[in-house]
Simulated scan of single mutants.
Amino acid sequence: MRKERLLRRLDEIGLSLERTQGALLLLGLGSVGNELDRLDEFSDLDFFVIVKPGYKTRFLELLDWISASHPIDYAFKNSRDGFKILFSDGIYGEFAVFEEQELENISYSEGRIVWKKSSFDDSKIPSSQVQKSNIHEVSLDFCINEALTNLYVGLCRYARGEKLSALRFIEGHAINSILKVLHLLEKEVAYYPDAFANERRLEKRFPRFAVKLEHMLQGYNRVPESANVILEYIESVHPINKQMCNEVRKLIKLCLQI
């Protein structure tokens, strides 16, 4: 079972760190952290490695400490702090390395200690370090009007032939604006909300809205149709300016004729 393999691999990384000078802590995150109940066959590894001051560069430049757990076929340095990797047996993972003093300045959801050096002080680990972003907005009026104007701008771009930009404004920005206040429009089911990506597990958290999504996200060649469904939705959940609504409808009609 992949779930067991993931947890075993993380334990193996911990054993490798035990043998590597400078390592202090291995922190499992997400579904291999404190959310083990949602670990499934499609999960991957997500973890932080905490090291002593002065050792960060060594752990980022030499990946022997991780390949010692299992050979890796792919390693992509996707940030100044970490990598995305693929082990030779198909297990995928993402990790970041931080020095001990950086702990208080990094954002993450609560993690699970997989391994730690016996001398490391547990009290230095924040239980959770999530810097609140604008994933959830409190202003319904602001976000709905933002979505409305996203539709307008996107349709104007579609009309001039900028279909990709139109897609991003309508099926991207407008939907994101709605997601920020969806908790004010529909009762949210408590199922592991992600503080950094509001679309995660949306189908379980907002099942009534989820069934509408396929009509809001019809793709590159049906952007006006998507815009029409989104407009009808925002009209149904919040009062919007009629003139602006009419202008958007005119643009939808125009774009459908292109």
Rank of each mutant, 00 (worst) to 15 (best):
D194K: 11
I144K: 01
L151V: 11
A159T: 10
G172I: 02
S177L: 02
K163Y: 14
E199M: 07
C156H: 09
P193M: 02
K163N: 15
L179P: 12
G161L: 11
R201W: 06
E188D: 04
N198K: 15
F169M: 05
D194L: 10
L155D: 15
F142H: 11
K180R: 13
L182P: 05
R160Y: 07
L182A: 03
I144H: 03
E199K: 06
Y158L: 12
I144V: 09
E162R: 14
R200H: 07
S177D: 02
I178N: 02
I170D: 03
L184H: 05
L140I: 14
Y158P: 12
L164C: 12
V189M: 07
A147V: 03
E199C: 02
A190T: 08
A197W: 10
R157W: 07
A166N: 11
L202V: 09
K180F: 03
E162P: 13
L148V: 07
T149M: 15
K187Q: 14
E186M: 00
L148K: 08
K163L: 14
L164P: 09
H183N: 11
A195Q: 02
K163T: 11
K163W: 12
A197D: 09
S177R: 01
L184M: 08
F142E: 11
Y152F: 14
S165Y: 14
F142T: 10
L167V: 07
L151T: 06
A190W: 13
Y192V: 06
A159E: 14
N145M: 08
K180W: 00
S139Y: 10
A197L: 11
C156I: 10
G172L: 08
L185G: 05
L185F: 07
R168E: 15
R201Q: 05
I170L: 05
V153F: 03
E146S: 13
L140G: 05
H183T: 05
A197Q: 08
H183S: 14
S139H: 12
A174G: 11
D141G: 13
V138W: 12
H183P: 13
K180T: 01
L179D: 01
L179K: 01
L140E: 00
A166F: 09
L185M: 07
Y191E: 07
C143I: 02
E186A: 03
E171N: 00
A159V: 13
G154E: 03
G161R: 13
G172T: 01
L202A: 13
C156K: 05
N198H: 13
I144M: 00
A147G: 09
L179A: 03
I175P: 12
L148M: 13
S139V: 06
R160S: 12
A190L: 14
L185N: 00
Y192N: 08
R160Q: 09
I178A: 04
K180E: 02
L151Q: 04
H183G: 12
N145L: 08
E186K: 00
N176I: 06
L155M: 15
R160H: 07
E171G: 00
R157P: 04
A159G: 12
A195V: 00
L140Q: 06
L148A: 08
L184F: 04
R200K: 09
C143K: 09
D194E: 08
A174R: 03
K180H: 00
I170S: 06
N150G: 12
L148W: 01
C143Y: 04
A195K: 03
L202C: 14
D194T: 07
C156L: 15
L151K: 06
L182Y: 01
P193N: 05
S165R: 04
A174E: 00
Y192H: 14
H183R: 02
H183C: 08
